[in-house]
Every structure is written in structure tokens, then in C-alpha cells.
Simulated assay, not measured.
Amino acid sequence: MRSFVRTWASNLKDRGIRVNLISPGLTETAALANASNTTRDGLVALILRGRLGQPDEVAIAVLFLASSDSALVNAREFLLFADGGYAQV
């Protein structure tokens, strides 16, 4: 995906279109709704914050990228990892 983002951003720059990638961590979604408590507890144990992310928390990062506040962010995997610290361990 990172390679696609860099290629698309390069190809679309003349049109003023920015391309970025959000990589959310483990998030409370329908995909985890049927997971067993053992599975969920095992996943949560990997996260420094001790809980799964919420969709609205990921949405905040998406809204930032969609806003003019991120005008200089382009061709990146967004490095504000909304993952509760999972990627840092």
C-alpha cells in the first residue's frame, strides 16, 4: 500500500490531489464482534493503552488528513498511529 500511495501521489500532484494512507491499529469493529474473550484479551494485551481503539478515534486522524491543516502531508503512511501504542512494542 505504501508503494501505491507514493505512486498515486506522484501521478496526481499536477491535479492538486494528495494521497495518504491511514494504518489504524486494532480497532473495535464488526470484524472483532464475534471474537472470543480469549482472543480479544490476547489482542488487548498487545496494546500499551490496554484497550482496543474506537472507530471515532481513527476518524479523527482521517478528518485531520481531509482538512487544510494537513496541506503539507502527502504520499505518506500517516505516522500518527492511532493504535494505543501497539506498533511501539
Rank of each mutant, 00 (worst) to 15 (best):
G42Y: 00
T39Y: 13
F81H: 12
A71C: 06
A33F: 02
D83Y: 04
E28R: 15
L65C: 08
S36Q: 07
S36A: 02
T29I: 01
F64D: 03
A66C: 15
A71P: 01
L48K: 15
A61L: 04
D56R: 14
N34R: 09
A71R: 14
A71V: 07
A33N: 14
L48C: 07
S70D: 04
D83F: 03
A59R: 07
L80G: 10
I47Q: 06
A33M: 08
A33L: 03
L63D: 07
A71H: 11
E28I: 03
N74A: 06
A30D: 15
A75Y: 10
T29P: 01
L52F: 15
S67N: 05
A31V: 04
T29V: 05
R49I: 12
N74C: 12
G42T: 08
E77N: 12
L43R: 03
A82H: 02
N34V: 01
S67I: 04
L48M: 11
T38C: 00
L46I: 03
L72F: 15
V58L: 09
A31F: 12
A75N: 12
G42A: 08
F78L: 07
G50V: 05
E77I: 13
V62S: 10
L46R: 15
L65N: 06
S68I: 00
R76W: 03
L52N: 13
D41H: 10
E28G: 01
L52R: 13
V44H: 13
I47D: 05
G53Y: 00
L46Q: 15
L48H: 13
G42M: 02
R49F: 10
P55E: 03
Q54V: 07
T38P: 00
R51Q: 11
A66W: 03
L79S: 11
